[in-house]
Write a protein that binds this DNA or RNA. Structure first.
Lengths: 344, 344
DNA sequence: ATTAATTTTGGGAACGTTACCATTGATTCA
DNA sequence: TGAATCAATGGTAACGTTCCCAAAATTAAT
């Protein structure tokens, strides 16, 4: 097969400019030791024939591709899209390219993507694993920055994440202040660290507050609207203890709960209050607006790239960045602390 | 600088297996002409030392990188995220990697990204240009598939898009049937082909229907919630003709309009009906649910990759795929055709 | 002017593959 | 048996850079 289109190379430049390719290479890589006049001559020729550096060759020789990998579970979830956007921005600033892979929550696909990243010889990767104990991530052979809870399992890797414990606490503080002392929870799939960590934070909160919760009202769901809806329906149909409040571990599930409430002929927040977790934009246009614990998605993406670039450039560190969450209060929570309910 | 980590190469395999690197190469590229026993021997050695093909070298030599580029204006808009997800899926199936770039509507960044794509030597690119007449896209030096209206300007390139004319017509049909004979419009920035095409479709519709619209009520906005909100506020504050209905050219702007209506103390759909364009998931959880003209985002992404792969593999064609839109009717439209209004 | 120091250039080798052609060994056919 | 065919392998030149060291060319120092 023909070796690609016939684009000009540094050898073409060298011939036309009457210098050696070494000199051309020096000019193009901003090496100081070149006479001003030759530099200009070379640059002119390069421009005139529309030269464009072949990154493949450069990478092969130098061992650096200037590409970073981002592996996330679901690009179609605005939270992850925001993370990607933040990473993209920062990578772009650093003149790096970002290879984005979305596994659609499929561990097999995740594994394939990891392989692709290694084969593409990215300089490093940012990963939010679908499976916590993703195989051999610590022997990945290149810098890896983790996003999210799985980081606990790889203490030697850098990581960025939001402060789930703090987020849960400010969320529960808010609920408590509104009189919701026994919220129900919709959490992610069992076996995932994210879930365990969330529930641990909940338990810790209640034990600190010295509130005896007894058994928590917990339902499990995938991180989608549909699955959140089903989980909420289950909660609502439970005999006896119909929840007045539902706290979900991501916003999509919260929207699902909202739909379920409506479907059941109930009203949010009058009958059921809902608190989400993520802070995606859609919460602003839902009705009622979704109150939620906001994770700094964009910032997470940016900081992850910062960390990764640091690692690539020799920072041996396994730095861990934990970013605080903050509350966004909208209409989905009712105040049931006084006798008659009132929306806030 | 050290030439990257010391990963095993085909030469290591060759030595260990006692064959030449040519033979190893043949085995690894599934060449038929290898004796079964040697094939196994080589594969065993490869596996045992954890060999992983160096794509850079392969690409440099073969002229193919197995990477595709996707350049979109805004990864954080769920519409584009869906397109990316679709493209991702298909690329993944074809064993290709997808390099995703988001320009954030910045023409300068778009240009940079295009340069990155060329330097990364992607085998081809899928582009939705921020600027219609993006410089030299037809002399890009590799296969390019366009998404969206700009395709008109490059008749020699393949393209995928949704049928805007048809989408506008079914949208206006619906509005007309509900008694909204004079909707206002919020459209994208002037100078963009997408806007012109939309308005042309509107005019054509009314002229076919033989309805004299006089001057259309049009406001301009960026493709964001905020900007849509401002445009809607302007529409609502216009003396005389307060619109009973707003038709926007994307869903985010429609959400902005929704917010504006609420802010103005009005109600959607009782006071103002809203029709969007895109079909992003958020429309399901807004209140009222957003009626919208749905573009097949995921399919667009998939088909774009299909087309691109076709072009890469020699299909000289400049195929144009136009996918139909369909209506999604939710609560944001009122029926004003009878004497008293009623929500549908 | 001669030598030393310094700047500027050139000439390969190397990065890890694939592409192509030549060679070997085994098999078939007359 | 010998030539002819075919399967299986080996050898070497690319691909377009960067890297390193040596060679000129220039400048400074004595």
């Amino acid at each position: 097969m023909k070796p690609s289109a016939n684009r000009p190379t540094i050898i073409n430049i060298a011939d036309l400019a009457g210098v050696s390719k070494s000199t051309v290479a020096r000019v193009l890589s901003d090496d100081e030791n070149v006479k001003k006049s030759t530099r200009e001559k070379v640059l002119n020729v390069a421009k005139s024939i529309g030269y464009e550096r072949n990154h493949l060759a450069k990478s092969l020789r130098s061992g650096r591709t200037g590409m970073l990998g981002l592996l996330i579970p679901d690009i179609a979830n605005p939270f992850w899209a925001e993370v990607a956007a933040g990473a993209q921005d920062r990578a772009s600033d650093a003149n790096a390219s970002l290879l984005v892979f979305s596994s659609n929550w499929d561990p097999k696909r995740e594994k394939d993507h990891l392989k692709s990243l290694r084969q593409a010889r990215v300089d490093g990767a940012i990963v939010n694993p679908v499976e916590d104990s993703i195989d051999g991530l610590d022997r990945f052979g290149m810098p890896v920055v983790l996003i999210g809870s799985s980081a606990e399992l790889f203490p030697q890797l850098s990581s960025v994440g939001s402060d789930i414990k703090q987020g849960v606490h400010i969320g529960l503080d808010l609920l408590t202040s509104l009189g919701h002392t026994q919220p129900a929870f919709i959490v992610g799939p069992s076996g995932k660290l994210a879930r365990a960590r969330f529930l641990a934070a909940v338990n810790e909160y209640y034990s600190i507050q010295n509130i005896d919760q007894g058994e928590l009202l917990v339902e499990e769901a995938e991180y989608t609207i549909d699955s959140g809806r089903e989980a909420a329906l289950k909660l609502l149909s439970r005999a006896g203890s119909k929840p007045l409040c539902i706290f979900t571990t991501n916003d999509l599930m919260a929207f699902g709960a909202l739909l379920a409430v409506r479907e059941s002929g109930l009203n949010c927040p009058d009958d059921v209050s809902i608190l989400g977790f993520d802070g995606i934009f859609s919460g602003e246009i839902s009705y009622p607006g979704l109150s939620t614990v906001v994770k700094p998605a964009r910032k997470i993406g940016r900081r992850a790239v910062d960390l990764l670039l640091g690692n690539i450039n020799g920072n041996e560190g396994n730095e861990r960045i934990v970013l605080p969450c903050e509350l966004k209060i909208r209409g989905s929570l009712a105040d049931v602390s006084s006798a008659r309910y009132q929306a806030i």
